[in-house]
Simulated assay, not measured.
Amino acid sequence: MSVFSVFDVAGSAMNAQSLRLNMTASNLANAETVAGSPEEAYKARQPVFAAALRSVQGGGEQAAVGVTMRDVAESDAPNQRLHMPDHPAADENGYVYRSNVNTVEEMTNMISASRSYQNSVEVMNTSKQLALQTLQLGQN
Rank of each mutant, 00 (worst) to 15 (best):
N22M: 04
V6G: 14
Q46I: 06
A41S: 09
G60S: 11
T103C: 02
A44K: 07
A51K: 12
P78N: 07
T108Q: 06
S127F: 01
A52M: 11
V104Q: 08
M110Q: 14
V67A: 13
F49S: 06
M107D: 02
F49V: 03
T68N: 10
E32H: 11
A25H: 09
V56A: 12
E74N: 05
A41M: 04
A131L: 15
V123E: 05
E122S: 09
G36F: 04
Y117M: 07
G36S: 12
N119Y: 10
K43S: 13
G11E: 13
R115A: 12
Q118T: 07
Q17R: 09
N27T: 03
R45D: 09
R45M: 14
S55H: 06
S26R: 10
A35K: 05
T108D: 00
S37G: 05
L21S: 07
N140R: 13
A50T: 12
E40A: 15
V48Y: 02
S2N: 13
Q129K: 15
P78R: 08
L28H: 07
T68V: 14
Q62K: 03
V48M: 11
N15K: 10
P38Q: 03
N93W: 06
V48Q: 12
A10R: 04
M69Q: 13
I111Y: 09
T68L: 10
T33E: 12
T33H: 09
A64P: 04
E106Q: 14
L137F: 06
S37I: 07
V72N: 10
A63C: 00
N22F: 03
L82Y: 01
A13V: 11
R98P: 04
V67F: 08
S120E: 02
S55N: 06
D91Y: 08
Y97T: 03
N102I: 00
